[in-house]
Design a protein around this nucleic acid. Structure first.
Length: 578
DNA sequence: CTAGGGTTAG
């Protein structure tokens, strides 16, 4: 008995995981199994342990599973631990298990489980918990009620959120903020503003939410107005305004605030990195990333995403390898993997992509729709259209990105009819196409040589769906016309472009001129290509070949000499020339 | 011991 009390008091003093584990050993050798829950509670609640030594979630499971009969408190404590630390996929099964073994829930467990349901959109379970709330008489607990309001708000079910909110006899600022967030998320800005104005005891979170709502909607005037007006700011207030500017591509303003703010958080850095990424300023993103000392998983993901989205897949993979080195030792998650798979797909590296898939299996990362779509894209681009289909059919929800990946896959692999079928299926499912969808469908038409249909499709982009064709789309059209020998028309299309054509567009014309032996236009196209990408040798070679076919030996010789003088690299940088 | 805001993906 005495030793038991002694160990309890020792446990309270433990500051590190190792000290705590030593007590666990003593508990076990003395056969004091009654003390095991105390050990677990200490593990989960000690801030010094959680901040420093990072116990693994696996370990918590292990310890928990050793308890013969967890009490109400222990269940709640453990479920809450997972929920608070973002391990929603651990919290939920544990909550279910608690019911299966016949243990009663507590308000604490319910609140934690609802939080998990809200965060990973477990609508059915959350609604089920709502019914239990009545059964156990928790329906007057302000924490439970607020969790419910938050749950329905996060899922966008505002009628129910509102009715739970109305039934509350006592509301605190958290309850108000939860419903405010719901209306902001449903982009009912004026309704949200009415709520905001009504909150009797606004705190910094209320202000931040409202500011972020305006910022996300692009109303930087209102956002700034509230930002100036608010009584006290924290880093989230600054971050809300910064990400507002960053999302709209105004990196000057974002940077000004970032430099000005008194206390930057991880979120500030990540918002800036992804802001630079969105406007294609990879160098500035990397510069910030390098100067950021306390990189967390999110910041690694943001930088990897930056490379993947800006067509620099090799650097994305390089960074992925970097983060897994022992001195950094960051465990990748779903977000990391979807970027990495996207990088593989850009490189056409099926082998490494499949290695990633096994690696995911090994560390227990399940395929969600995002990941499956990334893999669909990889399979489709690498010609494994059956595998792509398999995953496509297994998607919980097929959206525009998934369809676009399939359509492009069919297009590349020469199955234009199937691409068209998918496109039509998508339209009738009321999924609006985007610019990538059109790249896919135009590629399909191009491959099949259906230029009438392609033309119609190209013009319907803007008329039917309000999408402005990009250089890539023009490039496909030029390629299509070029293949059909309509070189003058292709040239006219280029000249009609509202933006500056990139090298790929002129390259498509150049290639066509090579095929159809057109020296005059070939010279014009090559000139533009070389101007845009002076280091690519392919353009010189193509023009030289055109001269050779036209039997203009002198010109060909002259060009080869220029090439030697410039010592241009042998690697073509353009996908049209291969 | 509970609940709310700001960041990353195909």
């Amino acid at each position: 008995m005495q030793i038991s009390e002694h160990l309890k008091s020792l446990l309270k003093k433990c500051k590190t995981l190792n000290q705590t584990k030593q007590i666990q050993a003593q508990i076990l050798t003395n056969g004091l199994n009654d003390l095991l829950p105390n050990f677990l509670h200490h593990l989960l609640q000690s801030t010094s342990i959680n901040k420093t030594s990072q116990i693994s979630f696996q370990y918590v499971h292990q310890v928990f599973d050793q308890l013969p009969n967890p009490d109400v408190f222990t269940w709640a404590c453990t479920i809450r631990y997972f929920s608070q630390n973002g391990q929603f996929k651990d919290a939920i099964p544990l909550y279910i298990r608690m019911h299966c073994v016949g243990s009663h829930p507590s308000t604490y467990a319910v609140a934690a489980a609802l939080k998990a349901c809200a965060r990973i959109s477990k609508k059915i379970l959350g609604t089920l918990i709502h019914t239990q709330v009545f059964k156990y008489g928790f329906n007057f607990d302000v924490y439970v009620q607020t969790s419910l309001v938050d749950f329905y708000s996060k899922l966008g079910i505002m009628e129910t959120a509102q009715s739970v909110f109305n039934e509350m006899s006592e509301r605190n600022v958290v309850s108000w903020n939860s419903i405010l967030h719901g209306y902001l998320k449903s982009v009912e800005l004026s309704k949200a503003r009415d709520f905001f104005d009504e909150i009797p005891m606004k705190d910094v979170v209320s202000w931040n939410s409202m500011i972020s709502g305006y910022a996300k909607a692009g109303d930087m005037g209102q956002a700034n107005c509230l930002f100036e007006e608010m009584p006290e700011r924290n880093s989230a207030s600054w971050n809300a305004v910064i990400s507002g500017y960053a999302d709209r591509g105004n990196m000057e303003e974002a940077r000004k605030l970032f430099n000005e703010m008194p206390q930057r958080s991880n979120v500030s850095w990540i918002a800036m990195i992804s802001g630079y990424s969105k406007c294609g300023n990879v160098d500035s993103a990397r510069e910030l990333f390098d100067s950021f000392r306390e990189k967390d998983l999110f910041s690694w993901n943001a930088m990897i995403a930056c490379y993947a989205q800006n067509s620099r897949p090799k650097e994305a993979l390089q960074l992925f390898h970097e983060m897994r080195k022992p001195n950094i030792n960051k465990q990748p998650d779903e977000m990391t993997f979807s970027c990495v798979i996207s990088a593989c797909s850009q490189l056409g590296d099926l082998e490494f992509g499949l290695w990633i898939k096994t690696y995911m299996n090994r560390i227990g990362v399940a395929l969600d729709d995002h990941l499956a779509t990334a893999l669909i894209d990889l399979y489709a681009k690498c010609g494994c259209i059956d595998k792509a289909y398999e995953l496509f059919h297994g998607l919980k929800r097929k959206d525009v990105v998934a369809y676009s990946a399939m359509i492009l896959g069919c297009g590349i692999n020469g199955n234009a009819l199937e691409a068209i079928r998918l496109f039509e299926e998508m339209i009738s499912a009321n999924i609006g196409p985007n610019s990538v969808t059109y790249t896919g469908i135009l590629t399909a038409y191009n491959h099949a040589g259906l230029f009438e249909e392609a033309y119609r499709c190209f013009s319907s982009m803007s008329t039917k769906h309000g999408l402005m064709p990009t250089s890539d789309h023009y490039g496909i059209m030029v390629d299509l016309l070029g293949r059909a020998g309509k070189l003058e028309e292709a040239h006219r299309v280029i000249k009609s472009m509202p933006m500056r054509p990139h090298a790929g567009v002129w390259g498509a014309l150049l290639l066509a001129c090579r095929v159809h032996c057109n020296v005059e236009l070939g010279e014009i196209a090559a000139q533009h290509c070389i101007e845009l990408e002076p280091d690519t040798s392919g353009y010189y070679s193509l023009l030289a070949n055109i001269y050779v076919s036209a039997e203009r030996w002198e010109d060909a010789k002259r060009l080869r000499k220029v090439m030697e003088e410039k010592k241009v690299s042998k690697i073509p940088g353009c996908s049209w020339i291969q």
